[in-house]
């Protein structure tokens, strides 16, 4: 019944005369819808709570943690989880909990930067090639095909190996392998609307091509792309962690989830599980959060297509 009050998500049968409060600004309507989605779907609410936790760890982490994540302690090596060390200590006596929390910032920076880069370039390229078509479309399409012709993680490995083993290059490599998704998505979303009635009408109203693309088509293509961004964030985190797991990018002793799991893996066969499990769980939780968020975002931006 809530949705009905919004006048947004009604089945066709009763859509004839929706009831909408008079003169409501777009922003307040949108906020109300966000609140409605959050309260009606506990899973989305959970995702937002988790996101808040991860973001605060990333921003405030170094100030919050009980130990210096780089401080070694010879007397405290390989201690299992306890009250003093919630997640135990590693082979050098460093506090695993502190390291896991502090690592959130680096992992988020890598994935946010990579996704931002590929979103900006990918959606611009995709939108232009989808709208204008022609040689520009062919060129962009060929570029994407070439990137997609590689298994993506393998291409990222090759790029980092060639550009040099640094964190910046991890970001570029992750951005490049993500690029085709945004290009194709933006291209498809723009292409289906290119000859829609409302675009033709905008042409008749005297809008130029660029104006139509920027003001009429792109805002309508944005919602499905937002969902993609969120799902992609999870994937970007996984990729970056995978690269550092095999020893690319981040170097010890910098705390980062992938490399911590890799170091912990050496001790798992002898039963020291906490070294690998806690950073692994943190990684999983972060990816899970962004995936849940993707579904939640879809509900907010695209109420008609809920599953």
């Amino acid at each position: 019944m809530q949705a009905r009050k919004d006048g947004l998500a009604m089945p066709v049968a009763i859509q004839a005369e929706p009831v909408v409060p008079k003169r409501e600004t777009g922003v307040s309507r949108w906020l109300r819808h966000v609140r409605h989605v959050l309260t009606s779907n506990p899973v989305t609410l959970l995702a937002f709570v988790l996101l808040t936790v991860i973001l605060s760890a990333a921003i405030l982490g170094p100030a919050l943690v009980p130990y210096d994540p780089l401080q070694t302690n010879a007397s405290q090596q390989m201690k299992p989880p306890s009250w003093a060390h919630w997640f135990g200590t590693d082979q050098l006596g460093r506090d695993v909990f502190s390291r896991v929390v502090v690592a959130a910032r680096l992992d988020l920076i890598i994935s946010v930067a990579a996704v931002a880069l590929s979103f900006v370039f990918g959606s611009a390229l995709g939108a232009v090639s989808g709208y204008f078509g022609g040689w520009c479309d062919k060129l962009v399409g060929r570029l994407c095909d070439t990137i997609m012709a590689f298994p993506l993680f393998v291409l990222a490995m090759g790029i980092v190996a060639a550009l040099g083993n640094t964190v910046d290059n991890i970001i570029y490599a992750t951005a490049i392998i993500n690029l085709p998704f945004y290009v194709r998505m933006a291209r498809a979303e723009v292409n289906v609307r290119r000859n829609a009635g409302f675009v033709q009408a905008a042409r008749l109203s005297g809008n130029s091509d660029w104006r139509i693309l920027a003001l009429h088509i792109f805002p309508n293509a944005l919602p499905p792309m937002m969902v993609q961004i969120s799902l992609n964030m999870g994937w970007a985190i996984l990729n970056a962690a995978g690269l550092s797991f095999i020893g690319l990018g981040v170097r010890p002793p910098t705390p980062e989830w992938g490399i911590m799991v890799a170091e912990g893996a050496n001790y798992i066969v002898s039963g020291e599980w906490w070294l690998a499990v806690f950073p692994g769980l943190a990684l999983m939780l972060a990816v899970f959060t962004f995936n849940l968020l993707g579904d939640g975002l879809r509900d907010i931006v695209d109420p008609q297509r809920r599953t």
Partner: peptide, 12 residues
Amino acid sequence: MVFQDSTDSLNP
């Protein structure tokens, strides 16, 4: 011009 499909011809 007035378009065929009034839903499709209005920007959502």
